[in-house]
Amino acid sequence: MDEQQFDKVKNGKGFIAALDQSGGSTPKALAAYGVTEDKYSGDDEMFGLVHDMRTRIITSPAFSSDRILGAILFEQTMDREIEGMYTADYLAEKKGIVPFLKIDKGLADEKNGVQLMKPITDLEETLKRANERHIFGTKMRSVIKEPNEQGIKEVVDQQFEVGRQIIAAGLVPIIEPEVDINSTSKPACETMLKDEILNHLEQLNEDENVMLKVTIPTEANLYRELIEHPRVVRVVALSGGYPTDIANEKLKENDGLIASFSRALSQDLNANQSEEEFNKTLGDAVESIYEASI
């Protein structure tokens, strides 16, 4: 593990950018960017265009280590290049931004009020390649929709089981049990989730560290115990579908919680913007998310 990157993620001022839309969400991401499905044919063209979009974001002067601590990449993004360098190397060496990798394979069908991760059948190989590509940490997402004790326990059990394998590979896992912002029992889900995560954190050894990615809680500072826990490197928040301004306002209410926004970061970017317009729009989003995070 890179100790300099570890210190930056743990103690730095800023936020984590999420650039990890995968196969299922890529058409939506491109459409929001102004590239509709009639402008490409097949997955190869689609993934090429989304890499062009991410390259434009990452190479923008607005995307800098002054405000951004790390960036979460999709697996194909990790294997592609920016200006002749693998994406993670470009981020780390040219930008001073810590690279993470999304490793989950999507969500299973809902059961017991939750959606577990689908099995990650190639986990060992993925972690080996992540190390070869100089990735610092990983991210994996589950979803909680109801305050079902059994379901929430299964989500956290699965996340930490995979998390230990990631730690053993020398990487830092971002454990992401998202609570659906549309859940009618969101506060109850969050209280149950916090208790279950604390149980698992207490079982980690002193050399085992994790990050957590959570939905911004309904009750401000609910996750303070998680943020202050010695086994937690950092707690970051997903925007969860909230528009940027609302996500930022909610984030500001939570001391020590920083952003890891995807849609809220890129929602106003468009393929047809000039470089000046694009950089200003991205810069405004970065600045607002940074301010909310600090």
Results as ranks from 00 to 15, higher is better:
239 S>K: 07
32 A>I: 01
161 E>P: 00
246 I>R: 07
263 R>T: 04
202 E>W: 05
243 P>Q: 10
30 L>K: 00
68 I>F: 03
166 I>A: 10
139 K>M: 14
99 P>A: 13
76 Q>P: 06
294 I>V: 15
158 Q>V: 06
286 V>A: 05
69 L>F: 09
290 Y>A: 06
293 S>Y: 01
44 D>W: 13
233 V>S: 08
259 A>D: 05
33 Y>M: 01
120 I>R: 09
251 L>C: 13
206 E>L: 13
44 D>L: 13
124 E>H: 06
289 I>H: 11
209 N>M: 15
188 A>M: 14
81 E>L: 09
209 N>D: 03
60 S>Y: 04
283 G>H: 05
18 A>Y: 01
74 F>C: 09
124 E>K: 14
145 K>D: 07
169 A>N: 11
82 I>W: 00
210 V>A: 10
62 A>P: 07
118 K>M: 13
51 H>W: 10
256 G>Y: 04
280 K>F: 03
125 E>I: 15
172 V>S: 04
167 I>V: 15
201 L>T: 02
227 I>W: 10
189 C>K: 09
245 D>G: 00
258 I>W: 02
61 P>M: 02
221 N>M: 08
123 L>R: 02
105 K>D: 15
9 V>I: 15
205 N>H: 11
146 E>C: 06
258 I>H: 01
29 A>F: 05
44 D>G: 14
196 E>W: 01
23 G>N: 04
80 R>E: 14
198 L>D: 09
75 E>A: 14
49 L>F: 10
236 V>F: 04
240 G>Y: 07
219 E>T: 14
103 I>F: 03
208 E>M: 11
55 T>P: 04
19 L>H: 01
11 N>D: 11
189 C>H: 06
289 I>S: 10
121 T>V: 14
4 Q>Y: 09
41 S>L: 10
142 S>Q: 05
293 S>W: 03
139 K>D: 14
163 G>L: 10
15 F>P: 02
229 H>M: 12
109 D>L: 13
256 G>E: 06
124 E>L: 03
3 E>T: 13
282 L>M: 11
206 E>W: 03
71 A>Y: 01
76 Q>S: 11
18 A>T: 06
82 I>Y: 03
255 D>Q: 14
121 T>P: 01
34 G>Q: 07
119 P>W: 12
246 I>L: 15
18 A>S: 12
106 G>I: 05
134 H>W: 02
130 A>G: 10
39 K>Y: 02
199 N>I: 14
55 T>W: 03
143 V>Y: 00
286 V>C: 07
161 E>R: 04
255 D>R: 10
99 P>E: 10
